[in-house]
């Protein structure tokens, strides 16, 4: 795999097939965590790291458990168990080891599992039959794409706070419409050939 292949794959994942604005996965955390720039960056980084780990685990389980034992029909259950169980174990370890984390009980990493983008990236990389390196790069670049999209959206929302919006559109409705217009802008990347 040459450098240009890696570059084109990651550009496709970040812009042309952006996980949120192109494929519409993970819209709920995208809207909920973009209230401020700080929470947007936090969500972006945590989702990127989770996606990276989860894509590796998905590749390994697909090749070592699901394919040899013909467990296609169990794929959803196995993948959900990996994501939710892994995050739950992480949370337990963090609570034991870090006093900072134990005090801030309202943060729960397990809730990253309730994000369609994380399960989506596992299913996409497995269904597209990517090899190990490509699936890791694709997952990492998709995470970067999520971060880029959520940072753009958070900065737009910070400006929306001070703008004069019709009363019925305040809050959720204008956020949905803004996200739609950003998605329209991102769909401009779909025509570009990165190869």
């Amino acid at each position: 795999m040459s450098f240009s292949d890696i570059l084109s794959l990651s550009l496709i994942a970040i812009f042309a097939e952006n996980i949120v604005l192109g494929q519409m996965l993970g819209i709920t955390p995208f809207l909920k965590n973009s209230q401020s720039m700080k929470s947007a960056v936090k969500a972006g980084v945590s989702v990127t790291l989770t996606m990276l780990v989860v894509a590796i685990l998905a590749y390994v389980t697909e090749k070592s458990i699901i394919m040899p034992f013909r467990l296609d029909y169990m794929r959803t259950v196995i993948f959900v168990t990996i994501v939710a169980g892994g995050l739950c174990i992480c949370e337990a370890i963090l609570r034991k080891k870090s006093s900072y984390f134990a005090e801030k009980t309202e943060i729960s990493p397990s809730y990253i599992a309730v994000n369609t983008a994380v399960l989506g990236i596992m299913l996409i990389t497995v269904n597209a039959n990517l090899d190990f390196l490509s699936s890791v790069i694709y997952a990492f670049a998709s995470g970067i794409g999520f971060t880029v999209a959520i940072i753009i959206f958070a900065s737009v929302r910070e400006r929306l706070e001070y703008s004069d919006v019709p009363k019925a559109f305040e809050g959720v409705p204008i956020a949905l419409i803004t996200a739609g217009l950003i998605a329209l802008a991102f769909s401009g990347f779909q025509g570009i050939k990165f190869m």
Binding site: G22, I27, F169, V172, I174, I177, A179, G180, L184, F186
Partner: peptide
């Protein structure tokens, strides 16, 4: 997808 979001809004 963008059109869907606008209609939802």
């Amino acid at each position: 997808g963008g059109g869907g979001l606008v209609i939802l809004g």
